[in-house]
Design a binder for these strands. Structure first.
Ligand SMILES: NC(=O)c1ccc[n+]([C@@H]2O[C@H](COP(=O)([O-])OP(=O)(O)OC[C@H]3O[C@@H](n4cnc5c(N)ncnc54)[C@H](O)[C@@H]3O)[C@@H](O)[C@H]2O)c1
Ligand SMILES: NC(=O)c1ccc[n+]([C@@H]2O[C@H](COP(=O)([O-])OP(=O)(O)OC[C@H]3O[C@@H](n4cnc5c(N)ncnc54)[C@H](O)[C@@H]3O)[C@@H](O)[C@H]2O)c1
Lengths: 229, 229
DNA sequence: AGGCGCTTGTGAAGGAGTGCACAAAGTTGC
DNA sequence: GCAACTTTGTGCACTCCTTCACAAGCGCCT
């Protein structure tokens, strides 16, 4: 059921007014809540939930307040209600069709990743350019030639594409995805993709993450020499 | 060298005062600059560099200003100088030893990822618990039993560890890493790790990234009045 | 019924990050 | 040597995010 016809009473909360920072944490909350539900918990306080999610209680409460008032004062939040509300906000209710382009080491791992399909996404196709790979089976799907992208994308209504090709091919792949109607891209290649403003790109960059860790590590090391007054 | 006892007055730029948001972008700048250098470019303006990195020129200039004044007014920045300065800030000069725990689909891909070793990191060991895997060769390294972690970590001075095990094992693995002296962790498992405050954890979460894309996708759809179909 | 303890929801304060605009500082051309 | 032009570096205002603190609301107990 698509209950997007607002049930009328959220005039106080702007529908599209969830801050970006909050959006970035909603998936985390959702996962933690699902884990709690699996563990048989049916009610949590903001303090407890914040602790398990690793954020401050005030931040958590404010985040949740953007979705509406789904808690009970003096008691806490009902886990199932929160899961449903956050899920609705993130669009987990619907099943987003996803394609992966580039089935090398990384693409292979992604295709076999269960977390994809268990959180509102359906992997509908794998594409690669390598003739050796095309036709082989990965994670229950047949790898298709990259040239099939347009027809598959339109047939399945694909709006999200994952780029897992080498950096050199990533821009071309992105262009093809955009041309095929995909307007959300998750990019693993270490390049900045140029796309029309209507297209949303998120970059996942392993090396960057490590370098940020290294930076903090180094700073910590530097400070050890100075702590002694 | 650049660090003498600061005589009570900071020179406008604080050593160690680089904002977190800037730190998060430095790896991006570094990569873009290396690409430019490879392409034979030796000077860039903030406008040009900002465009290739996908950020605003003002932001870029402010970011770089935290490292010092390495540009030339009227000209721009010398690519090699910037690479060196950013590299130094990030600790790329030294080679950080890294270990990966959990050599399944994802760990396999990570071990074979060239970007690791080419950016100041050296993969020193792979660990897994599975007896079938231990002893086999991946990316030129032998997979070692997880119990070897302490000795290897100390022998090589490992401070950065990558967790690529299933969620259920991640916390135990993190505990072992911390016990072995590792205090920077890159976690791919979809769980929130609990570690001492002295340990820095970064989480990379595929499903979250997709869900954030889905959120924006859904919002865009809603605003158009109706979703696909 | 009423008070008590607990937890949410939120205004308001404080802090971090971003964009703007321009003076300072360099280069080029004559 | 000077004027015109280019581009950096940064003070300032502004927006966004986080933290604080507490009134409002709910359930339970007496
Ligand atoms: N392996 C990792 O852990 C890792 C981590 C972070 C980022 N990355 C990045 O992810 C990307 C993929 O990494 P990988 O290790 O899987 O590389 P890979 O070489 O193993 O796989 C790349 C795949 O893309 C295919 N391909 C190439 N050009 C294509 C095109 N135009 N259209 C469709 N398919 C094409 C190739 O045939 C190959 O199968 C790279 O950009 C890499 O830098 C990898
Ligand atoms: N595959 C992906 O694309 C992907 C993406 C995002 C996140 N993840 C997460 O990364 C993790 C690994 O994913 P995967 O697909 O590689 O799983 P996988 O099952 O293929 O590999 C896990 C490996 O960890 C090893 N392992 C288990 N317990 C261990 C322990 N206590 N000590 C050492 N090694 C141990 C297993 O033997 C196995 O080799 C999972 O938590 C998954 O949710 C995977």
């Amino acid at each position: 059921m698509t209950d997007r016809a607002d049930a009328g009473r959220d005039l106080g909360v702007r529908r599209g007014g969830v801050p970006e920072a909050t959006v970035g944490r909603l998936p985390l909350y959702h996962r933690v809540l699902v884990d709690l539900a699996d563990a048989g918990v049916d009610t949590v306080s903001s303090d407890a939930l914040a602790a398990t999610a690793g954020v401050s209680p005030a931040k958590l409460r404010k985040d949740l307040s953007f979705l509406g008032s789904y808690g009970t004062r003096g008691v806490g939040y009902e886990v199932s209600v929160l899961i449903e509300q956050i899920g609705a906000e993130l669009g987990i209710s619907s099943e987003w069709p996803v394609v992966i382009v580039g089935v090398g080491h990384l693409g292979h791992a992604l295709a076999n990743y269960g977390g994809f399909t268990s959180r509102g996404f359906r992997l509908v196709a794998l594409f690669d350019e390598d003739p050796e790979l095309v036709g082989t089976d990965v994670a229950g799907l047949v790898i298709r030639p990259f040239t099939d992208l347009p027809s598959v994308a339109r047939a399945e209504g694909v709006t999200i594409g994952v780029v897992a090709t080498p950096a050199a091919a990533a821009q071309d792949v992105a262009d093809a995805l955009v041309a095929a109607g995909v307007n959300s891209v998750l990019n693993f290649a270490p390049v900045v993709l140029t796309v029309p403003p209507s297209v949303d790109v998120r970059r996942v960059d392993l090396a960057s993450e490590l370098q940020i860790l290294a930076f903090h590590q180094q700073r910590r090391g530097d400070e050890l020499g100075q702590v002694a007054r």
